[in-house]
């Protein structure tokens, strides 16, 4: 049981060293790129961009496939849905009620490519940014909103804790499931309702345990003088460096090229 999203791989690459705020902004720019691209050929650009970042971040390509794994069902579903449902004129293939049009195929490919690219980008960010750096970045970016009582620090702390406890709770769920299996529980047969009911012996202990952990963690945090965000300092100070400037420039260049090409060469496939 392993999820790639939210799992940080410690390292010291130039991508790792970027300020988390920069990475969040770059991520937004990247999402913009992926959605701006309206032609198949131009998809090469965000693809090159993200592959370059993977390379610079010393992230092995296998993580790319791991990132796709949890969404493969969604991916296939979205592909088929768009393939068959999108209205179009140029029929490529038809058999009984199944009709595949050129427009449908194009739409299906677009959606799938976008999903894959977005997933890769998001994984890249979490793989190269420690969760606490990410939350620090978010907190700093959102802190101007504190003036209107937006709980920036609390939100960031919640994210930190959630990320810390995901693996622990997954392990726990696995253990409880095995324990109930050993008592003859059956999670695999029966209809939907029977199966949902069969989950009760896992869910209740899991919730009880999550509350117990929350209670103990709250005590541990209090014991360590936690009293909200006020007056807190940070081990890692956030500072923009030359690397951040370069990353921003490169990203801007990619974005600009995409915008310009889309505007100037309207007929691209």
């Amino acid at each position: 049981m392993d999820i790639t999203l939210g799992q940080f791989i410690p390292g010291n690459s130039c991508i790792h060293r970027l300020d988390p705020r920069t990475k969040i902004w770059l991520m937004l720019a990247y999402i913009l790129m992926v959605f701006l691209v309206k032609s198949m050929v131009l998809f090469v650009l965000p693809l090159v961009y993200v592959l370059l970042a993977l390379k610079l971040g010393h992230i092995h390509l296998s993580y790319f496939f791991k990132a796709i794994k949890p969404i493969r069902v969604l991916l296939v579903f979205m592909f088929l849905l768009n393939l068959f449902v999108t209205p179009g004129e140029t029929v490529l293939f038809s058999w009984r009620f199944i009709v595949v049009t050129r427009e449908g195929l194009r739409q299906a490919l677009f959606i799938s490519l976008r999903l894959v690219l977005l997933m890769t980008g998001a994984s890249l960010m979490t793989l190269t940014t420690s969760p606490i750096a990410l939350t620090d970045g978010l907190e700093r970016m959102l802190s101007p909103l504190k003036a209107i009582h937006f709980p920036a620090h609390e939100l960031a702390m919640m994210m930190t804790i959630a990320l810390r406890f995901i693996p622990t709770l997954m392990e726990e769920a696995d253990k409880i499931k095995k324990a109930q299996l050993a008592r003859g529980a059956d999670f695999e047969s029966g209809n939907l309702i029977a199966r949902a009911k069969a989950m009760i012996p896992i869910l209740i202990p899991l919730f009880v345990s999550a509350f117990r952990r929350a209670d103990e963690l709250a005590m541990a945090m209090e014991s360590r003088c936690y009293h909200g965000g006020e007056g807190r300092t940070k081990l890692h100070q956030l500072r923009f460096t030359r690397g951040d400037l370069w990353a921003a420039l490169v990203t801007a260049a990619f974005l600009l090229v995409i915008i310009l090409v889309q505007a100037l060469v309207p007929g691209l496939v």
Binding site: E172, K175, I176, K178, A179, Q180, A182, R183, G184, A185, D186, I200, P201, I204, P205, V208, S209
Partner: peptide, 25 residues
């Protein structure tokens, strides 16, 4: 099979219901 800290698997409303889970299965 008794796992470590088996009390963390208890789930039913009453003790007897919980103990009956295995035999019922």
């Amino acid at each position: 099979m008794v796992f470590q800290y088996p009390e963390y698997q208890l789930f039913a409303d009453t003790v007897k219901e919980d103990i009956a889970f295995g035999p019922r299965n």
